[in-house]
Simulated scan of single mutants.
Amino acid sequence: MTSTDPAPQPHATAEQVEAARLDSKLAQVLYHDWEAESYDEKWSISYDQRCIDYARSCFDGIVPDDEFQRLPYDRALELGCGSGFFLLNLIQSGVARRGSVTDLSPGMVKVATRNGQALGLDIDGRVADAEHIPYDDDTFDLVVGHAVLHHIPDVELSLREVMRVLRPGGRFVFAGEPTTVGNQYARRLADLTWNLTIRAVKLPGLGGWRRPQAEIDENSRAAALEWIVDLHTFSPADLEKMATRAGAVDVDTATVEFTAAMLGWPVRTFESTVPPGKLGWGWSRFAFGSWKTLSWVDANIWRHVVPKGWFYNVMITGVKPS
């Protein structure tokens, strides 16, 4: 972070949450500052081979084969970096040499740059609005993001900014964006899991599985903010049109996770309702192994049967004209 970046606000009050209902960008800052220090744990994010392989599979799954001869890109930018998961793991996989991480949340930029430094990577970070990227024209060879576009009020404006800061011939890759259909079943499954778990841990003998009421109340406020910060869902075709209008060429989309998302959302929601460390390593192996198995089924079976727009995540790539 630069010396002029604002400080993180790790705990939002009820009054701030109420104010954020009328200001989506304030909501983004409050929610993601709130989540920053626990984000990697909440989403099972790591910077080892497991997540390196996942990040690289996203990149390989949407970028044309002939692009691989360009690797590594010299300089990459991540928008909405969160804890740095996507870019840091892409750099470790050989996609880029060095990078800049940006987010509207000071807390997330702090964590992402700290993670990059701990890994020994050439990383700098800035608090930045994706609709007004604070870098000069023609600066980056690659711009990436994971689960960021659906948080941005004006997605097409942001994509125009991406095109501006890319060098001619540079590429963008965005992954982890919710489809309209996928978001519907994911939300319902997550809400159902939350309500059932909160009721179940009140039963006699299950008190050890219940978080303190103060934590539950704080998580409930965070969940209220999450409804506010998730601004969009996408159909693959509409996302392609936005990128094309923004000036990109060679635009393409791909979708992933169908049954894997139907498992993943209840699993992650359940994990967030019980005390940290309660589930143990065996649960982690079960959750990750099951997700990998269902992801394979989705990619090799359901992809040939289920419409593209029914999968949960959509990825998009495009190029700035030379």
Rank of each mutant, 00 (worst) to 15 (best):
S93A: 15
G207M: 09
W291Q: 12
L77E: 08
L88S: 02
S100A: 09
L157Q: 14
D191Y: 09
G94T: 00
D74H: 15
M163D: 10
T244A: 07
K202W: 06
S272Q: 13
G82M: 08
P236H: 03
V297N: 03
F86N: 12
W296E: 12
Q49A: 15
S38L: 03
T193E: 07
R50D: 07
V256F: 08
V201S: 05
A96H: 02
D137M: 10
P168A: 12
C51L: 07
S3H: 12
N195I: 06
V109Y: 08
I133G: 13
L206T: 11
N183P: 02
A214Q: 13
A246W: 03
A214S: 13
S284Q: 04
W281D: 14
A260N: 10
L294V: 08
Q184P: 04
V155F: 05
V297D: 03
L279V: 10
P266L: 15
E67W: 07
W227T: 09
R98L: 02
P72D: 05
H151D: 03
L159S: 13
V306G: 03
S322R: 13
A96D: 02
V101C: 06
N219D: 10
D23Y: 04
V29G: 00
K292H: 13
D136R: 07
G125A: 05
Q49R: 15
L71I: 04
L239G: 03
D238M: 02
K42N: 10
A190W: 04
E161Q: 15
A147S: 14
T253H: 01
V305S: 01
A20S: 02
G120E: 00
A130F: 11
A175E: 14
T197F: 08
T253K: 00
E226A: 14
R268M: 14
E131I: 07
A254L: 07
D122R: 01
A224G: 04
F172A: 14
V305P: 01
H150D: 07
S83Q: 00
I45R: 01
R164F: 07
L121D: 02
A12H: 14
F68M: 11
Q69N: 05
P307F: 08
P134I: 04
I123Y: 01
V267L: 09
R164K: 12
T113Q: 05
